[in-house]
Nucleic acid binder design. Structure first.
Length: 187
DNA sequence: AGTATGATTGCCT
DNA sequence: GGCAATCATACTG
């Protein structure tokens, strides 16, 4: 089976930073990751802060897999599990620069504007057709495909506080490709 | 078994 | 800028 272009056993902030520029595809649809956020157990903003539950079980599983959760009862958000098994760490995929399967993403989102297809975690979920069925799936097997940045690394990666959280809102665990027009928000 | 709460988005003023 | 939509999960009693 194909090796992942990234070591997911590293800590979530390291993985979140390294994911910027990496291409993520689900069933051949997706693009280049331009924005991520790191979460970890012991982090009051993380779903794993209170220890293992039914919902967050995937994040306590082995690294290199997927954790999917329902946000505000409306959106599906995609996370990549990292660190050692049992740790409860992961990276939220917040924005992608669309490069593959753009027509399918436009159909799923009901929009044409490329800039609005994947610029936000809920938008990424809808554009890539993520749902609860992906929870716990391995990233090194279909339908997932992860391709190393291979020279497509951004010249600079911005770092800042995470978005939409009420606790530990000052921790600088949001990462983004500098100058990208596909970020969910400016840094 | 009932209630409170979001790692958000899109539409309205 | 403000707020409603919408529901699975977690927490309370």
């Amino acid at each position: 089976m194909p090796a992942l272009p990234l070591d997911f056993s590293a800590s979530s902030d390291i993985v979140a930073r390294a994911l910027i520029g990496v291409t993520l595809l689900i069933d051949g649809v997706g693009g280049r990751i331009v924005e991520t956020e790191a979460y970890d157990q012991g982090d009051p903003a993380s779903h794993t802060f209170g220890g293992p539950t039914l919902r967050n079980a995937a994040m306590f599983g082995p690294p290199g897999r997927v954790y999917v959760y329902r946000s505000y009862g409306i959106h599906w958000c995609l996370n990549l599990v990292c660190r050692e098994e049992g740790h409860g760490a992961g990276v939220l995929i917040r924005a992608i620069e669309p490069t593959a399967g753009i027509e399918r993403m436009q159909a799923r989102r009901g929009l044409e504007d490329i800039r609005l297809l994947c610029s936000g975690p809920g938008r990424v979920g809808q554009a890539l057709a993520v749902d609860a069925g992906f929870n716990g799936m391995r990233l090194d097997r279909p339908p997932f495909k992860l391709l190393g940045a291979e020279g497509a690394e951004p010249a600079e990666v911005h770092v800042g506080p995470r978005i939409g959280i009420s606790k530990a809102a000052d921790v600088p665990w949001r990462f983004g490709a500098a100058g990208s027009r596909f970020l969910s928000r400016r840094f």
